[in-house]
C-alpha cells in the first residue's frame, strides 16, 4: 500500500517536471513582460507538430529535429514579439488578451486544417520504455527522469541568464520600467523581443519532450496553457523555481487523483490548484 502511494507520488513529481517545462516560458513572459500569452500552449503544440513533420515526414531522428526546431523557435519568438505582441503591449489589457487569444484560435484551426484532428505522438526510440528499478514495484521511467532533470537544468540556466548576465540585467531593467529604460537609452522593444525569443526556445524544448511523452492533437494547447498557468500562479508570479514547485504540485495532485480513479486525474489537478490558490492567492513563493 505504502509502496503504491510512494510510487504514485514519485511518478507525479516526474510528471511535474514536464508541467514545469510547459510553464517555464509562461513564467518568463509573465515575470518579464507582465502578460499572459494565451496562445502559449498552442505554440508548444504547433512546434510539436513541426517536430512530427520533421521526424515522420522527413525521417529525421527526434533529437536532430529538436535541435533544428530550437533556433527556429528562438527566431519565431523574436518575430512574434516584434511584429505582433509589441504593438498591443502598451495598449489596454483587453487588446493583449484578445490578440493572444485570437492567435490561439488561429493556430488550433490551422493545425487542424493541415494535420487533421487525429491524436499524434512522436517516437522517441528505446528511451520511451526504459526504466530504472528502484525497489520492489517502484520503477522510474528513464524518459520522465530525463525530462525532470532537463526542467531543473533549464530553470537553473534561465536563472543564471536572468540574474548573472548582461542581457538578463537589461531584461530585468525593462521589466522594472519601460519608461526608465527608454530614458537611459535601452531599446526596450528589442529587449522584450529577445526575452520572447528565449521563451520561444524553452517552448521548443518542452514541445520536444511533450511530443515524445504524451499524445497531442491540434486542440491540446489550451489544456497545456491551463496547467502552465496553474504552475506559474502556484509558484508565485515571476519566480522560476516557484514554477517548478508549482508544476510538481499539479503533477502529484494528478497522479494521486488518478490513483483513485483514472478519470479524476485532470480534475484533481485543477481542484488542488483552486484550493491552494484560495488560501494563497499570491502563490507559494511570491517575488513581487
Amino acid at each position: 500500500m505504502v509502496e503504491i502511494w510512494t510510487n504514485q507520488i514519485l511518478q507525479g513529481v516526474l510528471l511535474g517536471g514536464l508541467y514545469a517545462l510547459f510553464a517555464i516560458g509562461l513564467s518568463l513572459s509573465v515575470g518579464v513582460m507582465r502578460f499572459v500569452n494565451i496562445a502559449h500552449g498552442d505554440l508548444i503544440v504547433m512546434i510539436s507538430f513541426v517536430l512530427l513533420s520533421l521526424t515522420g515526414g522527413l525521417g529525421l531522428p527526434t533529437l536532430a529535429a529538436v535541435a533544428i526546431v530550437i533556433p527556429i523557435s528562438f527566431v519565431g519568438g523574436y518575430l512574434l514579439q516584434r511584429l505582433l505582441l509589441q504593438r498591443v503591449l502598451g495598449k489596454d489589457v483587453l487588446s493583449i488578451i484578445l490578440v493572444t487569444f485570437g492567435l490561439s484560435i488561429v493556430i488550433q484551426n490551422a493545425l487542424q486544417g493541415v494535420y487533421g484532428a487525429d491524436i499524434r505522438k512522436v517516437g522517441g526510440g528505446a528511451i520511451e520504455t526504459a526504466t530504472i528499478p528502484l525497489s520492489g514495484n517502484i520503477n522510474v521511467g528513464v524518459l520522465p527522469l530525463v525530462i525532470f532533470i532537463s526542467a531543473t537544468l533549464l530553470i537553473w540556466l534561465l536563472d543564471l541568464l536572468l540574474y548573472r548576465s548582461r542581457i538578463g540585467a537589461r531584461i530585468r531593467a525593462v521589466s522594472d520600467s519601460v519608461a526608465t529604460a527608454d530614458l537611459v537609452g535601452l531599446r526596450s522593444a528589442r529587449i522584450y523581443a529577445i526575452a520572447m525569443a528565449i521563451v520561444g526556445a524553452t517552448m521548443a524544448i518542452s514541445a520536444g519532450f511533450m511530443a515524445i511523452w504524451t499524445n497531442f492533437d491540434p486542440t491540446s494547447g489550451p489544456s497545456r496553457l491551463l496547467i502552465a498557468f496553474e504552475a506559474v500562479v502556484l509558484g508565485g508570479l515571476g519566480n522560476l523555481w516557484g514554477t517548478l514547485i508549482g508544476g510538481i504540485i499539479i503533477g502529484v495532485a494528478q497522479a494521486v487523483g488518478a490513483q483513485f480513479d483514472a478519470a479524476w486525474q485532470v480534475l484533481a489537478g485543477h481542484i488542488v490548484f483552486l484550493a491552494i490558490f484560495l488560501t494563497r492567492p499570491q502563490g507559494l513563493f511570491p517575488k513581487y
Partner: peptide
C-alpha cells in the same frame, strides 16, 4: 526616439532618480 537621443550622447539624471529597483547598484 528617446533611446536614440540618449545613445547619441545625452545622458539624463532624471527627477526622482528612477533607478531599476530590482537591479543591484553595479547592474
Amino acid at each position: 526616439h528617446t533611446a536614440d537621443i540618449v545613445r547619441s550622447g545625452v545622458a539624463l539624471v532624471p527627477e526622482g532618480r528612477r533607478l531599476f529597483p530590482s537591479l543591484t547598484v553595479e547592474e
